[in-house]
Nucleic acid binder design. Structure first.
Lengths: 105, 105
DNA sequence: AATACATTTGACACTTCTTGACAAGTCAAA
DNA sequence: TTTGACTTGTCAAGAAGTGTCAAATGTATT
């Protein structure tokens, strides 16, 4: 892995941020949340910092466990995927807009 | 590959459609276009039908070769990536909208 | 029908990415 | 300094992506 690729790990995940925020408000430990969705604590840590992705099922479980809106969590999860897909392309905004238009039809 | 996965190959790529359309209008052969971006004809065929993805560089070359708008081609290319990222999630639209909002800031 | 050429398809080797798991590391509080 | 929470790096296995080829299919034209 090159030095540049390192930046990948500084990427922030909107879902991850939300999860961490919510978890801390409820005074839950990473370990507890991780156990609930049956993943390693390390993976949970990475997920909150956007270094690893969760799957849909895990996100749903998490939303329930944290008494949060499943819809919001899934939206954020998709949002992260979209942002990752367009990366930092100069035309990112246009691409996303186009996708929105196409998907509506 | 399961039967269900087959559906993947029925996916249409917006960029692919545009390329095919443009190529045919100019009476160019797959082979010619493929040669220009230095890929196998088979890959070009797949790209036009959305079975394989091109990379950014290839898309740019293609736009130039087909006297088309590079901006439009890249937008379509990103659009395809976005759509692929959200797959067919019921909350796809919301996820994309959220991404658009976040990216603007 | 037979030919010629364009396109599609499936298979393949190869590379790169992803995943889950583990161990060792940092850090702060007691 | 010990404890507990979190982070980091690494690994192996599997999945997914890439480019290429040969064979199959389609499509005019003669």
């Amino acid at each position: 892995m090159t030095l540049l690729d390192k930046s990948k790990y500084r990427n922030v995940s909107y879902l991850g941020q939300k999860i961490r925020e919510t978890r801390e408000k409820q005074n839950l430990l990473l370990r507890q949340v991780a156990a609930h969705i049956e993943v390693d604590t390390a993976l949970m840590s990475k997920a909150e910092r956007g270094e690893r992705n969760l799957n849909r099922e895990q996100v749903v479980k998490l939303a329930k466990f944290l008494n949060s809106s499943e819809e919001e969590y899934i939206s954020l999860w998709l949002c992260d995927k979209v942002i990752e897909a367009v990366d930092n392309d100069p035309l990112a905004t246009q691409g996303i807009k186009k996708a929105l238009t196409k998907i509506k039809n």
